[in-house]
């Protein structure tokens, strides 16, 4: 398990990284490397050139700008996990990251890398959808901000243009009445989810005034269970309604068969995880 040869460049700034990406054909960005390097060791990926963005200070830092929590793309999972600011402003990230990989991997793996890689098994894409996050991308043509909703297009396929770099993740800070839930089923620590579901709810008394249900690893990419959201929005959640929502989620899933289970199992688990996360979120909103 040894990667093929490649050239290696350290980028010193966002501009430098963008320039190096432009200069080197088929170059790949290496962030934490815990998705890319294993693929390179298996020689499933053989990029001729890696551009390392670990040294770029402007990609780090976590702050609040207005009603947005701004997270530099190169924060490691553990930096986000251990941030009191994240805990206060958007605890969904804190709770979800606890279930990401293992402590060492979280020390290297970055939130930006997880989002940008486009792997349906990664946890953050569905979280971004549930949070209605915005992604800041910078490339040769400058900087743009795009909603996470619509960014994930397929397996290893995102709305990132050639030569672009994900630089920031912006998530709305928690408002009054908002609750979060997260449930993830996996075979063991360090495995991808059989199914995972981050949920955002906004409550008006006992009524769900808004809801977003993200789903992980039950389709070619992360997506939202929109039919279920539409069913639940504006209603008081009952067991029967949740059951109905679960059926809609099962219909919406299109997972691939692997050792984690059949498409049928994974779809059912997606519904189960979503239902658990919805209950948690409603409970969370009350507190």
């Amino acid at each position: 398990m040894i990667p093929s040869e490649f050239e290696y460049h350290k980028a010193t700034s966002i501009q430098d990284a963008i320039a190096k990406l432009a200069e080197n054909d088929e170059a790949k960005i290496i962030a934490g490397g815990h998705s890319l390097l294993p693929m390179m060791k298996l020689r499933f990926a053989e990029p001729p050139c890696l551009i390392d963005i670990n040294g770029i200070e402007e990609l780090r830092g976590i702050s609040v700008e207005g009603d947005m929590l701004v997270i530099g793309a190169m924060n490691t999972e553990n930096e986000v996990l251990n941030s009191p600011l994240v805990q206060e402003k958007c605890s969904l990230l804190t709770e979800a990251i606890k279930l990401v990989a293992d402590p060492q991997v979280r020390n290297r793996g970055t939130i930006g890398g997880d989002v940008a890689h486009g792997d349906p098994g990664n946890d953050h894409p569905a979280i971004m959808l549930a949070l209605d996050a915005e992604l800041v991308l910078e490339g040769p043509d400058g900087k743009r901000t795009t909603p996470a909703n619509g960014f994930f297009l397929g397996t290893y396929w995102t709305g990132m243009e050639e030569g672009e770099l994900l630089t920031q993740i912006r998530v709305p800070v928690r408002e009054q009445g908002v609750g979060y839930g997260y449930a993830k089923l996996k075979r063991k620590t360090g495995d991808y989810a059989v199914a995972g579901s981050p949920v955002y709810v906004k409550m008006n008394g006992d009524t769900v005034s808004d809801i977003r249900i993200g789903l992980t690893n039950v389709g070619p990419c992360a997506f939202r269970a929109e039919a279920a959201e539409n069913l639940l929005r504006g209603n008081v959640i009952t067991d029967d309604l949740l059951k109905e929502a679960g059926a809609l989620i099962i219909d919406a899933c299109d997972p691939a068969e692997d050792l984690r289970g059949s498409p049928e199992y994974k779809s059912h688990m997606a519904a189960e995880m979503a239902k658990r996360a919805i209950r948690q979120a409603i409970e969370d909103a009350r507190n």
Binding site: K188, G190, D191
Partner: peptide, 16 residues
């Protein structure tokens, strides 16, 4: 052979 890495082959961790 399906599953010949420690991603798939079950070696329980402290948690399991």
């Amino acid at each position: 052979l399906l599953g010949n890495t420690l991603m798939d082959y079950f070696v329980p961790t402290f948690v399991e």
